[in-house]
Design a protein around this nucleic acid. Structure first.
Length: 225
DNA sequence: CTCACGATTGGA
DNA sequence: CCAATCGTGAGC
Protein backbone atom coordinates (compact mmCIF):
# COMPACT_ATOMS: atom_id res chain seq x y z
CA UNK A 1 0.00 0.00 0.00
CA UNK A 2 1.33 3.35 -0.94
CA UNK A 3 1.79 5.73 1.94
CA UNK A 4 0.51 9.02 0.62
CA UNK A 5 1.43 12.21 2.40
CA UNK A 6 -0.85 12.80 5.34
CA UNK A 7 -1.48 16.52 5.34
CA UNK A 8 -2.74 18.18 8.51
CA UNK A 9 -6.10 19.90 8.05
CA UNK A 10 -7.80 22.84 9.72
CA UNK A 11 -10.04 20.62 11.84
CA UNK A 12 -7.01 19.02 13.51
CA UNK A 13 -5.67 22.48 14.30
CA UNK A 14 -8.99 23.74 15.67
CA UNK A 15 -8.00 23.04 19.25
CA UNK A 16 -6.43 25.25 21.95
CA UNK A 17 -2.88 26.27 21.05
CA UNK A 18 -1.44 24.54 24.12
CA UNK A 19 -2.98 21.27 22.92
CA UNK A 20 -1.80 21.63 19.33
CA UNK A 21 1.74 22.79 20.10
CA UNK A 22 2.99 19.53 21.66
CA UNK A 23 1.24 17.52 18.96
CA UNK A 24 3.02 19.46 16.22
CA UNK A 25 6.44 18.38 17.46
CA UNK A 26 7.43 15.48 15.23
CA UNK A 27 5.26 16.65 12.36
CA UNK A 28 6.74 17.94 9.10
CA UNK A 29 6.67 21.48 7.76
CA UNK A 30 6.68 21.41 3.98
CA UNK A 31 7.84 24.37 1.90
CA UNK A 32 7.00 24.39 -1.78
CA UNK A 33 9.40 26.69 -3.57
CA UNK A 34 8.35 28.80 -6.58
CA UNK A 35 10.09 26.34 -8.92
CA UNK A 36 8.13 23.45 -7.47
CA UNK A 37 10.86 21.95 -5.35
CA UNK A 38 9.74 20.70 -1.93
CA UNK A 39 11.70 21.03 1.28
CA UNK A 40 10.64 19.11 4.39
CA UNK A 41 11.77 19.86 7.91
CA UNK A 42 10.87 17.98 11.09
CA UNK A 43 9.32 20.26 13.70
CA UNK A 44 11.37 19.79 16.87
CA UNK A 45 10.31 22.82 18.94
CA UNK A 46 7.09 24.82 19.35
CA UNK A 47 5.46 27.40 21.60
CA UNK A 48 1.79 28.16 22.20
CA UNK A 49 0.17 31.59 22.46
CA UNK A 50 -3.47 32.03 23.34
CA UNK A 51 -6.26 34.20 24.76
CA UNK A 52 -5.57 35.67 28.19
CA UNK A 53 -1.87 35.25 27.54
CA UNK A 54 0.02 38.57 27.98
CA UNK A 55 2.77 37.38 25.63
CA UNK A 56 0.31 36.78 22.80
CA UNK A 57 0.34 39.40 20.04
CA UNK A 58 -3.45 39.41 20.17
CA UNK A 59 -3.58 39.98 23.93
CA UNK A 60 -4.72 43.60 23.83
CA UNK A 61 -6.92 43.75 20.77
CA UNK A 62 -7.38 42.95 17.16
CA UNK A 63 -5.01 44.94 14.94
CA UNK A 64 -4.06 44.75 11.26
CA UNK A 65 -1.04 42.61 12.08
CA UNK A 66 -2.62 40.08 14.44
CA UNK A 67 -6.02 39.89 12.69
CA UNK A 68 -5.32 36.44 11.24
CA UNK A 69 -4.90 35.04 14.76
CA UNK A 70 -8.57 35.77 15.37
CA UNK A 71 -9.57 33.83 12.30
CA UNK A 72 -10.10 30.11 11.79
CA UNK A 73 -7.37 27.53 12.37
CA UNK A 74 -5.08 26.42 9.58
CA UNK A 75 -3.78 29.80 8.48
CA UNK A 76 -0.24 31.13 8.76
CA UNK A 77 0.70 34.13 10.88
CA UNK A 78 4.12 35.52 10.00
CA UNK A 79 5.52 38.66 11.58
CA UNK A 80 8.74 40.66 11.53
CA UNK A 81 10.72 40.72 14.75
CA UNK A 82 13.55 43.07 15.69
CA UNK A 83 13.35 44.57 12.22
CA UNK A 84 15.29 41.72 10.66
CA UNK A 85 13.86 38.27 11.29
CA UNK A 86 10.53 36.65 10.62
CA UNK A 87 8.65 34.14 12.75
CA UNK A 88 6.18 31.56 11.48
CA UNK A 89 3.04 30.65 13.40
CA UNK A 90 0.18 28.24 12.78
CA UNK A 91 -3.21 29.70 13.71
CA UNK A 92 -5.16 27.39 15.99
CA UNK A 93 -8.48 26.99 17.84
CA UNK A 94 -12.00 28.05 16.93
CA UNK A 95 -12.78 31.06 14.79
CA UNK A 96 -12.61 34.28 16.85
CA UNK A 97 -10.32 32.71 19.47
CA UNK A 98 -6.96 34.47 19.03
CA UNK A 99 -4.27 31.81 19.28
CA UNK A 100 -1.34 30.33 17.43
CA UNK A 101 1.64 28.01 17.67
CA UNK A 102 5.08 29.39 16.94
CA UNK A 103 7.31 26.99 15.01
CA UNK A 104 10.69 27.45 16.71
CA UNK A 105 13.00 24.89 15.14
CA UNK A 106 13.25 22.34 12.36
CA UNK A 107 15.54 19.39 11.77
CA UNK A 108 16.52 18.51 8.20
CA UNK A 109 17.45 14.95 7.32
CA UNK A 110 19.51 16.09 4.37
CA UNK A 111 21.10 19.34 3.37
CA UNK A 112 18.39 21.31 1.53
CA UNK A 113 20.31 21.68 -1.73
CA UNK A 114 17.43 23.34 -3.56
CA UNK A 115 17.78 26.24 -1.14
CA UNK A 116 20.70 28.58 -1.45
CA UNK A 117 21.75 28.34 2.16
CA UNK A 118 24.47 30.80 2.96
CA UNK A 119 25.82 29.71 6.30
CA UNK A 120 28.77 27.90 7.72
CA UNK A 121 26.69 26.36 10.45
CA UNK A 122 26.28 22.59 10.68
CA UNK A 123 23.12 21.08 9.18
CA UNK A 124 21.45 20.58 12.55
CA UNK A 125 21.74 24.30 13.38
CA UNK A 126 20.55 26.00 10.19
CA UNK A 127 16.92 26.06 11.34
CA UNK A 128 17.51 26.02 15.10
CA UNK A 129 15.42 29.07 15.97
CA UNK A 130 12.24 30.79 14.70
CA UNK A 131 14.12 33.48 12.80
CA UNK A 132 16.61 31.03 11.35
CA UNK A 133 14.03 28.62 9.99
CA UNK A 134 12.18 31.43 8.22
CA UNK A 135 15.43 32.70 6.77
CA UNK A 136 16.47 29.31 5.43
CA UNK A 137 13.01 28.56 3.99
CA UNK A 138 12.64 32.09 2.60
CA UNK A 139 9.47 32.86 4.57
CA UNK A 140 8.46 36.50 5.11
CA UNK A 141 5.34 38.55 5.79
CA UNK A 142 4.09 37.88 2.28
CA UNK A 143 3.37 34.40 3.62
CA UNK A 144 1.16 35.60 6.45
CA UNK A 145 -2.54 34.87 6.25
CA UNK A 146 -2.27 32.04 3.75
CA UNK A 147 -3.86 28.63 4.12
CA UNK A 148 -1.67 25.75 5.27
CA UNK A 149 -2.78 23.28 2.66
CA UNK A 150 -1.14 20.96 0.18
CA UNK A 151 -0.49 22.86 -3.01
CA UNK A 152 0.16 26.10 -1.15
CA UNK A 153 3.68 27.42 -0.43
CA UNK A 154 3.49 25.89 3.05
CA UNK A 155 1.69 22.99 4.65
CA UNK A 156 2.02 20.50 7.49
CA UNK A 157 2.12 16.71 7.58
CA UNK A 158 1.31 14.38 10.46
CA UNK A 159 3.94 12.41 12.35
CA UNK A 160 5.11 9.25 10.64
CA UNK A 161 3.77 6.05 12.20
CA UNK A 162 7.26 5.27 13.48
CA UNK A 163 7.61 8.65 15.16
CA UNK A 164 4.13 8.48 16.69
CA UNK A 165 4.93 5.07 18.15
CA UNK A 166 8.23 6.29 19.48
CA UNK A 167 6.48 9.10 21.32
CA UNK A 168 3.84 6.72 22.63
CA UNK A 169 6.53 4.35 23.87
CA UNK A 170 8.46 7.10 25.60
CA UNK A 171 8.68 6.55 29.33
CA UNK A 172 6.03 8.66 30.99
CA UNK A 173 4.58 8.57 34.51
CA UNK A 174 1.13 8.62 32.98
CA UNK A 175 1.62 5.74 30.60
CA UNK A 176 3.97 3.38 32.37
CA UNK A 177 2.26 0.28 33.57
CA UNK A 178 -0.41 0.49 30.94
CA UNK A 179 -1.04 -2.39 28.64
CA UNK A 180 -1.43 -2.04 24.91
CA UNK A 181 -4.41 -3.39 23.01
CA UNK A 182 -2.50 -6.45 21.87
CA UNK A 183 -1.69 -7.37 25.44
CA UNK A 184 1.98 -6.49 25.26
CA UNK A 185 3.57 -3.98 27.55
CA UNK A 186 4.79 -0.77 25.99
CA UNK A 187 8.42 -0.68 26.93
CA UNK A 188 11.91 0.51 26.25
CA UNK A 189 12.64 -2.58 24.16
CA UNK A 190 11.18 -0.62 21.26
CA UNK A 191 13.66 0.90 18.83
CA UNK A 192 13.63 4.54 19.75
CA UNK A 193 11.78 6.52 22.36
CA UNK A 194 11.18 10.15 21.48
CA UNK A 195 10.36 12.31 24.45
CA UNK A 196 8.78 15.72 24.61
CA UNK A 197 10.06 18.21 27.13
CA UNK A 198 7.81 21.02 28.35
CA UNK A 199 9.26 24.29 29.62
CA UNK A 200 8.52 28.00 29.83
CA UNK A 201 8.75 30.07 26.64
CA UNK A 202 11.83 31.89 25.42
CA UNK A 203 12.63 35.56 24.96
CA UNK A 204 9.50 37.00 26.56
CA UNK A 205 9.05 39.90 28.95
CA UNK A 206 5.46 38.98 29.84
CA UNK A 207 3.84 35.64 30.52
CA UNK A 208 7.26 34.24 31.36
CA UNK A 209 5.87 31.64 33.75
CA UNK A 210 3.43 29.98 31.36
CA UNK A 211 4.96 26.58 30.43
CA UNK A 212 3.92 26.52 26.81
CA UNK A 213 7.13 25.52 25.05
CA UNK A 214 7.74 21.96 23.89
CA UNK A 215 10.77 20.41 22.26
CA UNK A 216 12.22 17.06 21.36
CA UNK A 217 14.51 15.80 24.08
CA UNK A 218 18.18 15.51 23.18
CA UNK A 219 17.59 16.99 19.73
CA UNK A 220 20.58 18.96 18.47
CA UNK A 221 18.34 21.08 16.22
CA UNK A 222 16.45 22.71 19.11
CA UNK A 223 17.05 26.47 19.48
CA UNK A 224 18.16 26.31 23.10
CA UNK A 225 18.76 23.39 25.40
C1' DC B 1 2.04 61.87 14.30
C1' DT B 2 5.67 60.23 17.23
C1' DC B 3 8.63 56.98 19.29
C1' DA B 4 9.90 53.05 22.27
C1' DC B 5 10.25 48.41 21.70
C1' DG B 6 10.21 43.38 20.33
C1' DA B 7 7.81 35.50 20.43
C1' DT B 8 16.01 37.07 17.59
C1' DT B 9 20.55 36.34 16.32
C1' DG B 10 25.45 36.56 16.06
C1' DG B 11 29.43 38.66 17.46
C1' DA B 12 32.49 41.22 21.06
C1' DC C 1 27.14 41.89 27.30
C1' DC C 2 25.45 44.42 23.16
C1' DA C 3 24.15 46.17 18.49
C1' DA C 4 21.49 45.61 14.19
C1' DT C 5 17.16 47.32 12.13
C1' DC C 6 12.22 48.65 11.21
C1' DG C 7 7.22 47.65 11.45
C1' DT C 8 3.91 48.06 14.86
C1' DG C 9 0.80 50.14 17.98
C1' DA C 10 0.08 52.73 22.26
C1' DG C 11 -0.26 57.28 23.61
C1' DC C 12 -0.55 62.09 22.89
Amino acid sequence: MTQISDAIDAAWLSRPADAVAPDLVGCQLVRALPNGDLVRGLIVETEAYGPGDPACHAYRRRTPRNAVMFGPAGMTYVYLIYGMYHCLNVVTDQDEVPSAVLIRALKFEEWPHCLDVQTKQPLHRIAAGPGKLCRVLDINREFSGIELKKGQPLWLEHRSVAFAEAVANAASPLTTGQTKADGTKPSQESSTSEQLVQTTRIGLTQGVDIPWRWYLKDCRAVSKL
